[in-house]
């Protein structure tokens, strides 16, 4: 499903070349719930961004469902993301001027669905995350846990191939974090979603099928 083959990534800061990932190879089968752990600066977010198609490797290939995303041009990559990736961010990244409903609807605006179909999808996604009664609320009228659930609804509304989550519980209290992890677990088990999650939180990682540790840009 996701085949990461021998990728390396480095950043250039002024004249310094800073290696972040070196020779990473990784397979994520369909339906997998993978947690990437490791200390800060170990490259786990970079690896996640590469899989999500918002960053490009220096060398190597990343194939998702048969598409080598490292070869797509920027515009095609954007289209690919809109069809295949659901993003869950640490700070939710909802647009503050849009309601929960409108935030979840955003990715659907990039599809050919009619207004009525979009409404049905959005309502289904928001009900799934338990916020069917909060659709007209703006992000600032919601708690952190609720905001993250709106963000999860936004991530799943297009039925993407893979969900990428970067510290999804990092900004939440323990109870809300627990709820979010239950939800993610359900998405994986019940809806067979493939999930790649970066986390520092061992409790969150417990829900994953598989935990991989990154250290200094290398997997082990």
């Amino acid at each position: 499903m996701i085949e990461v083959h021998n990728i390396s990534k480095s950043y250039r800061r002024d004249s310094l070349e800073i290696p972040v990932l070196s020779n990473i190879t990784l397979d994520v089968p369909e339906g997998e719930f993978l947690a990437l752990m490791g200390p800060s600066g170990s490259g786990k977010t970079t690896l996640l961004n590469l899989i999500a198609g918002i960053d490009r490797p220096n060398t190597g290939s990343i194939t998702v469902n048969g598409t080598d995303i490292a070869t797509l041009n920027e515009s095609n990559l954007a289209t690919w993301r809109s069809h295949n990736v659901g993003f869950i961010f640490q700070f939710y990244n909802l647009l503050p001027v849009l309601t929960a409903f409108e935030n979840v609807e955003l990715p659907l605006l990039l599809t050919n669905l009619s207004k009525k179909e979009r409404r049905e999808h959005v309502e289904a996604a928001l009900k799934l995350v338990g916020l069917g009664d909060r659709m007209k609320h703006y992000p600032k009228q919601l708690s952190g846990g609720q905001e993250q659930r709106v963000a999860i609804a936004r991530a799943i509304v297009t039925d993407p191939t893979v969900l990428v989550a970067d510290e999804p519980t990092g900004d939440l209290d323990r109870v809300s974090a627990g709820e979010i992890m239950v939800l993610m677990d359900r998405l994986n088990k019940e809806f067979k979603k493939t999930i790649v999650m970066v986390t520092h939180d061992p409790r969150a990682a417990e829900k994953a099928h598989k935990v991989m540790h990154l250290d200094k840009g290398e997997l082990n």
């Binding site: 999500a52 918002i54 920027e74 690919w80 809109s82 993003f87 700070f91 647009l95 503050p96 990715p107």
Partner: peptide
């Protein structure tokens, strides 16, 4: 800036 980044990540084009 973050909103723009989010929109772009979701697949909205430049």
């Amino acid at each position: 800036t973050v909103e723009i980044g989010t929109l772009r990540a979701l697949g909205f084009k430049r």
